[in-house]
């Protein structure tokens, strides 16, 4: 008899004792509560997984929720979404030129200050500005430190530009603006224009430059307030806020009359 067969026989001699089988069966019966209990560890095993997901979602939500929107209008209308970490998370063009400008910008996931500088140095933007167009920058956000900080930084950025206007709103109107397919800065101007000329439509406004809208508003405005529109606008740049409103109730006229 060779070794293989001997090994086989020897191992065959090893049998599980009945007591062993019985104890295993009893153990299982007890452990599974008569084969009714669902795997006990399952529920707890999911908790770390759920916690991880929660963290990821929370992080994503914190990062990808815009807290402040910066709306830039010349003729190209572009809106930058800024999250609570001051990073640009979205760049949206609101008309043809705006989409073109948005595509040419590489500002996503950068600091908003850098983004504004990049926009102000953009060739298209520079050529618009040198043609005397108005650049209108609205900061839309909740009334907290971030919005005012962003506004003051933008004002610093655009200080040298005489046709730049910066203002801040904590308005909810931005949703209405987006529904109309306009960026907020343009929407404000549109509302102002609509008050003077109800026949104006958003489609018409969409492709007008801010200068054109401004001029149109000035033409339609009651004569006594429309004496020196260009200079008035310049004067309002210095106080930075709410030039549209200012024009009608005559804010900043002291300065304009000096000129």
């Amino acid at each position: 008899m060779n070794m293989n067969d001997k090994l086989k026989e020897a191992f065959d001699g090893i049998k599980a004792e009945e007591a062993l089988k019985e104890s295993a069966k009893n153990f299982l019966l007890q452990k599974t509560k008569g084969y009714t209990k669902v795997r006990p560890a399952n529920r707890w095993r999911l908790i770390p997984l759920a916690a991880c997901f929660l963290l990821i979602f929370l992080g994503g939500w914190l990062y990808f929720t815009p807290t402040v929107t910066i709306s830039i209008d010349i003729n190209p209308s572009v809106e930058l979404g800024v999250n609570r970490f001051n990073q640009i998370i979205s760049v949206t063009g609101y008309n043809e030129d705006g989409v073109k400008l948005a595509d040419s910008l590489d500002v996503k996931y950068t600091h908003y200050g850098k983004a504004i500088r990049q926009i102000m140095e953009n060739d298209d933007v520079l050529s618009f500005l040198s043609n005397g167009e108005i650049i209108d920058i609205s900061v839309i956000g909740s009334a907290d430190g971030q919005s005012s900080k962003i506004l003051s930084e933008i004002e610093a950025c655009t200080a040298e530009e005489e046709n730049a206007y910066c203002h801040y709103t904590d308005s909810q109107e931005v949703d209405a603006a987006h529904e109309a397919g306009l960026s907020y800065g343009k929407y404000r101007a549109f509302l102002e224009l609509q008050a003077l000329d109800p026949s104006i439509t958003t489609e018409k406004v969409q492709n007008m430059t801010m200068r054109e809208i401004r001029d149109l508003i000035n033409t339609l405005s009651p004569q006594e307030e429309d004496s020196t529109p260009g200079e008035k606008e310049n004067s309002q740049q210095e106080n930075g806020h709410g030039y549209g409103k200012g024009k009608r109730n005559g804010n900043g006229q002291g300065k304009s009359s000096d000129k």
């Binding site: 049998k15 599980a16 004792e17 062993l20 089988k21 069966k25 019966l29 008569g34 084969y35």
Partner: peptide, 18 residues
């Protein structure tokens, strides 16, 4: 199920024991 488990115990107890 219990039947299935008992069958497996009977069938493979020796193997596991070895």
């Amino acid at each position: 199920s219990e039947q299935e488990v008992n069958r497996v115990i009977e069938q493979y107890a020796d193997t596991v024991r070895r």
